[in-house]
């Protein structure tokens, strides 16, 4: 078929300008909560990764527990003491979340006001903005590569969680160990509910019944879809659990809390 150019839509009568709307309800509440929540996490994670250890001397590992921000721990001898090993790792989950379809929706609304809410006017400076059709946001298409990479630290986090419960020949079911298991479970749920994974495991094929391989991929696609429905919840729960896990390990390291544990 010869490509027919899509016509450009004629102008409507929507009120223009930031916040212009006739909506009555508090449409600004959701982006505000998201902006505050993300902001708090970003500030905390930067503080924990860059400042807490070098400046305040709070270790990122304590009593066999390793902060998830630093796993897998890469600490070669030549690394200067002021350089946080978290920098070598954090770009992977950061890139994975920054290009995530859920987070894109959330931060486009909360931070870029593009749009701030549905049927709500946005800053007039946006009017000629090319969104994900041009640089830099066209780079969001690399999300699948961050997905692949995200499984590397995830495997190490499972190892960390196991090692937190297993102390030599005995078991230690401590508060922080349990939190670490919950954390890595939530991170796994977040990764497996990814839209790109849902596409790659089966969404890209058109006929699910046409081969045994396609049937297997259909089964995987169904499970990915089941997880994907709650992708937003996985995203928030895992974001909070990472911060809480790190905070507990730091507090344990500086002696502010204890780690009650069952040992057998």
């Amino acid at each position: 078929m010869t490509a027919i150019p899509t016509p450009i839509k004629p102008a409507g009568t929507a009120p223009q300008g930031m916040g212009a709307t006739t909506r009555r309800e508090a449409w600004w509440r959701e982006p505000l909560v998201i902006a505050v929540g993300f902001g708090a996490f970003i500030v905390y994670s930067l503080f924990s990764a860059l400042v807490w250890g070098p400046v305040f001397g709070a270790p990122y590992e304590a009593s066999g527990y390793l902060s998830p921000f630093f796993s897998p721990l890469i600490r070669p001898d030549w690394l200067p003491s002021w350089f946080s090993p978290a920098i070598l790792i954090l770009w992977i989950p950061l890139g994975f979340r920054a290009t995530c379809y859920y987070y894109r929706k959330a931060y486009y609304r909360a931070y870029f006001a593009d749009p701030p809410g549905c049927a709500v006017g946005e800053p007039t400076i946006h009017r000629r903005y090319a969104l994900e059709a041009a640089f830099p946001f066209i780079l969001q298409n690399v999300h699948r590569y961050f997905l692949y990479l995200a499984f590397i630290p995830l495997l190490f986090l499972w190892q960390d969680a196991f090692l937190a419960l297993r102390q030599g020949e005995s078991w230690r079911i401590g508060l922080i160990g349990v939190v670490m298991v919950v954390n890595v479970t939530l991170l796994t749920g977040y990764s497996l509910s990814c839209h790109s994974l849902r596409h790659l495991v089966g969404g890209k094929i058109d006929c699910f019944s046409c081969s045994r391989g396609a049937l297997l991929r259909y089964a995987m696609w169904q499970r990915a879809t089941w997880l994907n429905i709650h992708h937003m919840r996985w995203a928030w729960a895992s974001l909070i659990s990472v911060a809480v896990t790190d905070l507990l390990i730091r507090l344990l390291a500086i002696g502010a809390i204890a780690d009650p544990a069952l040992r057998f």
Binding site: R104, A130, A133, F137
Partner: peptide, 9 residues
Amino acid sequence: IGYCNITKC
């Protein structure tokens, strides 16, 4: 399709 920034409205 690149113009869609998936804000789900």
